Simulated assay, not measured.
Amino acid sequence: MTSLLSTYSASASTNASSSDKSKAASAPATVIPAIEPTSKKATKMTTPSSFSLKLSSKLKALALKALPQFLGLAFLVLIWTIIAEKNTSLPSPWVTLQEAIKLFSDPFYQNGPNDQGIGWNIYASLKRVAVGFGLAAIVGIPLGFMIGRFSFMAGMFNPIISLLKPVSPLAWLPIGLLVFKAAHPAAIWSIFICSIWPMVINTAIGVQRVPQDYMNVARVLNLSEWKILTRILFPSVLPYMLTGVRLAIGTAWLVIVAAEMLTGGVGIGFWVWDEWNNLNVPHIIIAIVVIGLVGLILEQILVAVARAFTYEETGA
């Protein structure tokens, strides 16, 4: 009986020890909740550092992109300063900057028909450009489609384009004055006749470069000419057409400045010539910078439009 009790107690102690060992073996599972807050803290501590690294890399890339442009402008100002020191008739960058601040403090003043702020002069030039450029687009783009689509039209208009395209913009101004008997429509005529050629040529080239397979499918499906134009030609030609429009707007802005110098009235070109007559050289330099900035803005707007409507094929 005593041996049985001792055996039972020994087995009980063995089971107890084994159960304690099993509990001890499963003990690490109870440690997980205590470790989890530490891992969260570690994640929270590492997140700002990764964000700061990304931000610093973006700032570095932006700085590397802007540095050449800044150095180019600084080099231009340096050359300007050296020339201004050698030639006292040319104002320095600092003097020109002071005059620009005074000029743009009230850009829309009006003291008479020939004494208006630079804002009104820019506005008048942009209006002339808009009218002449718009008329050129209305005429030039459909004409380009017809020249590219029909060989008869191409043979008819190609000699005319080859003959008139190289003519200087200012050579058209006396014709406009003779026909319209006024300076304002003559300036618009000069813009029209000089900005139409890039749109005609680029649109015609785009139509001619449409894949022949597209036209064969249209012929098999017996599509009408209107559907061929709207479903096939226009989407394919759009990048070429927008390139022509971008080139034309640059030509139009160049022509209006030269035309206004000769015709007079309100406009940025006339304003430059009037300031030259007054020997106000700082204002002439300011006008040159303004003309360049406006032309750059117009071109960048059209470049953005061209990118939005240009589709490039990507390989798999």
Rank of each mutant, 00 (worst) to 15 (best):
T43G: 11
I205C: 01
V217N: 05
A29R: 12
P282D: 06
T46W: 11
Y109N: 05
P68A: 02
A27K: 12
S9Y: 14
F51C: 07
A136E: 03
T43I: 10
I284E: 01
A304E: 05
F192L: 11
P37A: 00
S162V: 02
G295Q: 08
W197M: 10
A25G: 12
T310D: 13
A306V: 01
A218Q: 04
L73S: 06
S190C: 06
S236H: 10
T96P: 04
G244V: 05
P142A: 09
W197G: 08
T96D: 13
H283Q: 14
A137H: 03
M199W: 05
A66S: 10
D213C: 05
R128D: 01
I286K: 01
R219N: 10
L170W: 08
R231G: 04
P113W: 00
G144N: 02
L135N: 04
A304W: 06
H184E: 15
I82K: 08
K21A: 15
N278R: 15
T88M: 10
V255G: 10
S195W: 09
V179N: 06
V179C: 06
K65Y: 00
E85P: 02
G267C: 04
F145W: 06
V129H: 11
A10P: 07
F145D: 01
L67D: 00
V95A: 14
Q300F: 08
I297G: 06
V289P: 11
A252W: 08
M146N: 07
S6D: 08
G132D: 10
L71M: 14
I201V: 15
L62T: 13
L173H: 07
A306H: 14
D106C: 09
F104V: 02
W80S: 12
G132R: 06
T38C: 00
V139A: 10
L229H: 12
K41R: 11
T7D: 12
I35R: 00
E312R: 15
R246D: 05
T310S: 15
N15L: 10
A186Q: 02
R209M: 12
